[in-house]
């Protein structure tokens, strides 16, 4: 099957994650704070009866955190250890592999972040590919 990515936005930056690992995209719902967890852990939500952890992707990737807006979305991903969500500024579209060219990251960038895997370049767009499992590693604050 042809690869597709869900593309979303953090400030001016676009990121994509494999559509296969996306379970759903939710509007912001009440989040219960989890005490003593890592700073980027926003808390847990009631996702149709399942208690699901949610992280703030802005904080996780070192952006400034902002108030939520109408556009704010929680992307729920199916990961190695269960479902988990991350908050993004907005979710734009689904991009197909045919429309972009995949280029490797510059070596220096690869060392810096282990959650980016490649860059996708299209005619009028550019986004970084994210490996969502990496975002949730070491989520618990020791």
């Amino acid at each position: 099957m042809e690869q597709k990515w869900v593309v979303f936005q953090l400030e001016e930056n676009a990121y994509g994650i494999d559509v296969q690992s996306v379970r759903s995209i939710e509007r912001v719902i009440p989040i219960t704070r989890i005490p003593n967890a890592a700073s980027y852990v926003k808390g847990v939500i009631n996702l149709r009866g399942v208690v699901t952890p949610v992280i703030d992707l802005r904080t996780r990737l070192g952006f400034e955190s902002v108030e939520e807006t109408e556009e704010t979305r929680i992307i729920i991903a199916t990961l190695e250890h269960g479902d988990a969500g991350f908050i993004v500024d907005c979710a734009n579209e689904v991009v197909e592999a045919a429309d972009v060219r995949i280029e490797p990251l510059a070596d220096s960038k690869q060392d810096e972040t282990n959650y980016l895997t490649a860059i996708a370049k299209g005619e009028d767009q550019l986004f970084s590919l994210l490996e969502p499992n990496r975002l949730f590693e070491e989520i618990i604050h020791a």
Binding site: A37, V51, A84
Partner: peptide, 19 residues
């Protein structure tokens, strides 16, 4: 009682969650 899930296992003094 609902589990917090693997990602949040081990959070201090929290044994689970409920809705």
């Amino acid at each position: 009682m609902k589990p917090l899930g693997s990602y949040l296992e081990g959070i201090r003094a929290i044994s689970g969650a409920t809705i």
